[in-house]
Design a binder for these strands. Structure first.
Lengths: 203, 203
DNA sequence: GTCTATATCCAGATAGAC
DNA sequence: GTCTATCTGGATATAGAC
């Protein structure tokens, strides 16, 4: 495991991550990354041979740091409703601190499917445990029938969409007011979980 | 109103839309657009002065053609549950035929907020009627209490996320199998509406 | 390891013939 | 209106001194 000392290499990685995440691969400039890291372009190429290589390093790092730590809550052994509450709360919390990550990952993944999708497989995201848990609840008759994968997609959608959709939501629903948008996000930590649970709860 | 004859100008617009939507502003090349339109670069600049101008024309066109025609179902005078069903069905249907549009609009909007957000305001998306309808239902006691804006966000999220999240969903949930992903989308036209209605329905 | 200077390439934009 | 040829700027990448 690599330690994140304050070496030049990790400086570059952090700077590159900020720029790439904000502007995307095509939009980012090596000059800008160099400036952000407080060094010059030549040094970027000394540490990472090319823009492509630097990007790939950054993308893998961002992906691995994010997606699994979030999905890990799915593999806990909490009861389903509690798990949903924790998942939504935790997910929205993490994304609030890194609001541009989901757009970044989804955009780059969508424009480099072949090259980057093997990264996903390498990380090995496994929803099986969650799927089984939901199936068990359905068979036990404690929740309404639903395809477990649909449920998972819904949970992801409810958490991620407010961030990728921010520019349009802010204008259309929140008078372009950053404050109102943030209140919305805070409410959402509870409201979204409630919405999901309400839908599958047997009453 | 402009008629879409098969003039050179509209040829360019259509070609540019395909390329821009697929690759984004930064990723698109004027050469590629020219090839797609079966003409040469110089002619692009003859009709639209610059890449910026061409992009803006394309973006406005895509935005205006899409967003309002979808949100129009929100302003019909159907009863709420029926409205949700129609909205979800119609929305997913339209997006299935134009799967890259939401990612395109959201990405570009997020990277050009100042410049493009006035376009949103110009189009004038107005959720007031829907908001009032939901409020009325809540006061009448026919659905569970919910912030109408939250409900709208949830509806959008349930429809849009499967498309922007396709690359990751396909790998993680559908064995990288395009066929399975499409079955998922088809199920979803009904399942998503059901999920939403279940959540707010009083029982 | 880090810098300055430079090479190389490519994309957007223009000139000008037809 | 449409083309070929060309200009120009900017971005990635390399050479080579320190």
């Amino acid at each position: 495991m690599k330690i994140n000392d304050s070496t030049t290499e990790s400086n570059i990685m952090e700077a590159a991550k900020r720029i790439f995440v904000l502007k995307g691969f095509e939009g980012a400039r090596m000059q800008e990354i160099a400036d952000e890291a407080g060094i010059n372009k030549a040094l970027l190429h000394y540490y990472f041979r090319s823009k492509d290589k630097l990007f790939e390093a950054v993308f893998i790092d961002a992906f691995v740091k994010f997606v699994p730590t979030i999905l890990i809550t799915l593999n806990s052994n909490s009861p389903l409703f509690r798990k949903i509450e924790v998942f939504v709360d935790h997910y929205i919390d993490v994304l609030s601190k890194n609001p541009f990550i989901p757009g970044f990952i989804l955009h780059e993944l969508g424009h480099n499917t072949e090259r980057l999708s093997k990264i996903i497989r390498t990380v090995g995201l496994n929803p099986d445990l969650f799927v089984e848990q939901v199936k068990a609840e359905i068979e036990a008759g404690s929740i309404n029938p639903i395809d477990p994968r649909d449920l998972l997609v819904n949970m992801l959608a409810m958490c991620i969409f407010p961030f990728v959709g921010k520019p349009i939501l802010k204008v259309v629903l929140f008078k372009n007011n950053e404050e109102e948008y943030h209140e919305f996000l805070n409410r959402r930590k509870i409201a979204a979980a409630q919405f999901i649970i309400n839908s599958i709860k047997k009453r």
